[in-house]
């Protein structure tokens, strides 16, 4: 007689059946899965509108079983602003990489946060422009080799990395702004909780919410997926400390 079985985990229903185009081991997939699980747990999948960026996540609309729009490079927060203002009962989130959000989209993200737009931003920080071949991004670490800084990022001529969460958290319109990492099971669980809190912030109308996720880029870093996770732990977390940069008083009261 077969023992009774119980299902512990299955692919979230908020995902379509399309396999992702991401490189093997890229933690974009983990971030997608966490967002899908959170939307499913909150029961808001059928009233969610995502805004896809330009970058590796440009095809995000193929993977989520929600409505989606595609924004020009860096303009996802501006487009999300419009969508949310026209359809305030929808859950609107943008999913942006560092090349999109911290470089060309710096103006949009800062002003969307300053206006306190009631949207959620999932910010993937993998320290380079992944889609176009690993060029230097504003978040590239000092000394880190990329295809456009082959001798390592020289801070004398190329400047210092930008810490987005710290910067965004100084704005008054922001309700929730944290940085998490996706390099081990514990931190993935913490990241999921942060994404849940960010969406709860939006559903309750408590202001702009952003979750920065430290992510990997095994192909452009020239590492195996397992070594990429070690790189995040050893080099990225010291430069981008994990933590809650802004949690407004109203959100501290929210119990999930």
């Amino acid at each position: 007689m077969a023992a009774p079985e119980s299902l512990v985990y299955e692919r979230p229903e908020s995902f379509t059946e399309t396999p992702t185009h991401y490189c093997p081991g890229c933690t974009h997939g983990v971030a997608h899965r966490l967002v899908a699980e959170v939307l499913e747990e909150m029961g808001v999948t059928n009233r969610t509108i995502g805004v896809a960026p330009v970058g590796c996540a440009v095809f995000a609309y193929n993977y989520f079983d929600t409505d989606f729009v595609e924004a020009p490079h860096g303009r996802a927060p501006a487009m999300a602003t419009g969508v949310k203002r026209v359809l305030p009962d929808r859950v609107v989130f943008t999913y942006q990489g560092d090349g999109d959000l911290a470089s060309i989209g710096m103006g949009e993200i800062v002003h969307a946060a300053a206006r306190g737009e009631n949207i959620t931003v999932i910010f993937i920080n993998n320290a380079n422009f992944g889609m176009t071949g690993g060029q230097m991004a504003p978040t590239t670490l000092p000394g880190m080799k990329t295809t456009s800084s082959p001798n390592g990022r020289d801070v004398e001529s190329q400047g210092y990395p930008i810490r987005m969460s710290e910067m965004i958290s100084t704005l008054d319109g922001v309700g929730y702004c944290v940085r998490r990492s996706l390099h081990d099971p514990k931190n993935i669980r913490l990241a999921k909780k942060a994404i849940r809190t960010a969406f709860e912030t939006q559903v309750r109308g408590l202001g702009f919410s952003m979750v920065e996720l430290l992510s990997t880029c095994p192909t452009n870093w020239g590492m195996t997926p397992v070594n990429s996770l070690k790189f995040v732990e050893e080099h990225m977390i010291p430069a981008y400390p994990l933590g809650d940069y802004k949690v407004s008083e109203a959100i501290k009261q929210v119990k999930i």
Partner: peptide, 21 residues
């Protein structure tokens, strides 16, 4: 059946079952 493999899987490829004791 701890599901840690499914937690770290970037492609949501793993379904986990556990025997009910």
């Amino acid at each position: 059946g701890c599901a840690i493999c499914a937690l770290v899987c970037p492609d949501a490829a793993i379904t986990v079952y556990r025997e009910v004791t």
